[in-house]
Computed example of a mutant assay.
Amino acid sequence: MTQHPTRMRRKAWLLCVPLMLAQTHPAVQAQQPPDQIVELRSNGGYTSARLADDVTQVDLAEQVQGACRFNRSWGYDLTNRELWTNDGCGGRFRITRSYAQGGGNNNSSNNAGAAVAAVAAIAGIALLANQHNRDDDRRPGYPDYGNGGGGGRGGEIRVDGRLCLDVSKGNFRPGNALQVYECNGTDSQRFRVGRGGEIRVRDFCLDVERGDPRDGARVVLWSCSGSRSQQWTTRGGQIVSQLNGKCLDVVDGRLRPGNPTMVYQCNRSPSQRWWF
């Protein structure tokens, strides 16, 4: 079968990308800067410290007070460049930085930055070209599973950029759990927000099981009733229950496919950051 000329040109261009990347710039050698230790203590409430733009990882080096549990009483957010503690946790934290901005000579850093920028630009163009190719191949009438939480057939509610809120096992029945799962565009990941603050999927609503006000209460499907256990609002990327002021979260803060959801004290951890 003869291929469309436009698609042949796109494929040929994409095949050239690896060669262009290889010729962008030779590898840059620079010394890794030493790790930095930062001490941060919670006085019982939320406390945070600013992270530099070149920080890539934070680890708890030593607990100095309270009970420090990752994504519960301490954590970090590289998007907002923030290290935080809560609930009395105090610790000494090891800050790992990238060499591109944190060490080496200026010429090496500048060259590395130029190389990264060139790679990012080429990769971005390649992704756009590939997206156009997929759009051309879409079958007539095939649904476009784009994001967007309100109205119509609904859309995905994402966490961590790679997982979606999901109906466990695709089983639409009262009492079935909600979980996080790899985004796949199925009906079990299509949610819409109602006028009363309810979050709907098909004919069901997200519900705090049995109106339980405690940390760890499960979030399940239930027939829509307008009760406070089914009313939600958003605040700074968090989805907050109007029943108890707690946030939609993932059990143990572990963002892994198949882990169930719950409500938990709002602490701005990555497992409580959702977007439509």
Rank of each mutant, 00 (worst) to 15 (best):
L248E: 01
G148K: 00
E39P: 07
N80A: 07
T79D: 13
N184V: 06
G170P: 12
D144A: 08
Q242M: 12
Q231M: 05
P260I: 09
N71R: 12
T47D: 11
R81P: 01
I37W: 08
K169R: 14
R218K: 15
D215V: 14
V28E: 13
R134T: 09
D207W: 02
R214G: 15
I95C: 01
Q63C: 07
L128F: 12
S227M: 06
V55L: 01
R235C: 01
G124E: 10
D59W: 02
I125V: 15
T96K: 12
L19C: 04
F70D: 01
C164L: 11
T24A: 15
D136G: 11
D35W: 08
N43R: 08
V17T: 14
D212V: 04
V193F: 01
L19T: 09
G196F: 01
D252P: 00
N111V: 11
Y76G: 05
A114Y: 09
S223T: 06
S223R: 06
Y264D: 10
C247A: 10
N244S: 05
D87W: 12
Q32I: 13
C224K: 06
P270I: 13
I157T: 11
L14R: 14
Y181H: 10
V180E: 06
G148T: 00
D252W: 07
A27Q: 08
R195Q: 13
Q189W: 05
A49N: 07
R254A: 09
L163M: 13
R50Q: 10
V208L: 03
A67L: 13
E182Q: 14
G161W: 03
G237I: 13
R50W: 05
T2P: 14
F172P: 02
T24H: 08
D53E: 11
Q231H: 04
L60T: 01
S225V: 02
G154S: 13
N71A: 03
D249Q: 05
S188V: 09
Q3G: 15
K246Y: 02
S223E: 03
L19Y: 10
K169H: 14
G211N: 09
G113A: 10
N110R: 10
R273M: 09
K246P: 02
E209R: 11
F93L: 07
S229R: 12
I199W: 00
C68F: 05
V116H: 10
D54Y: 06
Q231T: 05
R218V: 07
P26W: 04
N71F: 02
A52E: 09
Q189L: 03
